[in-house]
Amino acid sequence: MHTMDALNELLLRCGRQDGVAFKQLYQQSSPKLYALCCRLVRDEALAEDILQEGFLKIWHSAATYSTDKGQAFIWMATIVRNQALDRLRMAKSRPEIHPEVEYESLEFASQAITPDLLTQLSSDTQQLLECMEQLKPEQRECIFQAFYYGCTHEELAASQQRPLGTVKAWIRRGLEQLRNCLA
């Protein structure tokens, strides 16, 4: 069974209050979701809190999941990422990016998409990557930074050393292009 299909099955079992399935689901999916939280909030203790809250929500909402809502992993990622974005919005000051911290790199997203990697990804993600490949490098970079680090337009303008309007236009056009490609 494909890993993603196995996660779907585990999440469905969680909806029936199956604690054993929940543990397996947690073991298989939490390392990537924790990596996402670490990148978004750049604080491991806070990332742990968010992950925990996210999994509590996953457990309580699991009964509402069905496979027509998409892959379980992505459904869970949406919950956890929204938790993290909410926390970021509540924070008085946004965490700084420290390039020397290992998880700050975007190298993983820019590596070549090998056939082996493709087979591990869901079909939606494969399509998304193909669409991302068609964007200009600066558009892609901004979208990745916004997605993985929760960067605002202002932060992106600062990191790219470009005017705010330019960065906003890159993202707007990038998203338009993605929208057409994904349609």
Binding site: K23, Y26, S30, P31, K32, L33, Y34, A35, L36, C38, R39, E48, L51, Q52, F55, L56, W59, K69, G70, Q71, F73, I74, W75, A77, T78, R81, Y103, F108, A109, Q120, L121, S122, D124, T125, L128, L129, F144, F147, Y148, L182
Partner: peptide, 26 residues
Amino acid sequence: QKLNGLVELLPSHTVPTRVWHNLEQA
């Protein structure tokens, strides 16, 4: 659903065991 597929690309990060213990308790 479409964009969050990007999470699949992330390298795994070891989660401290206390997170699971807290969940189990909660």
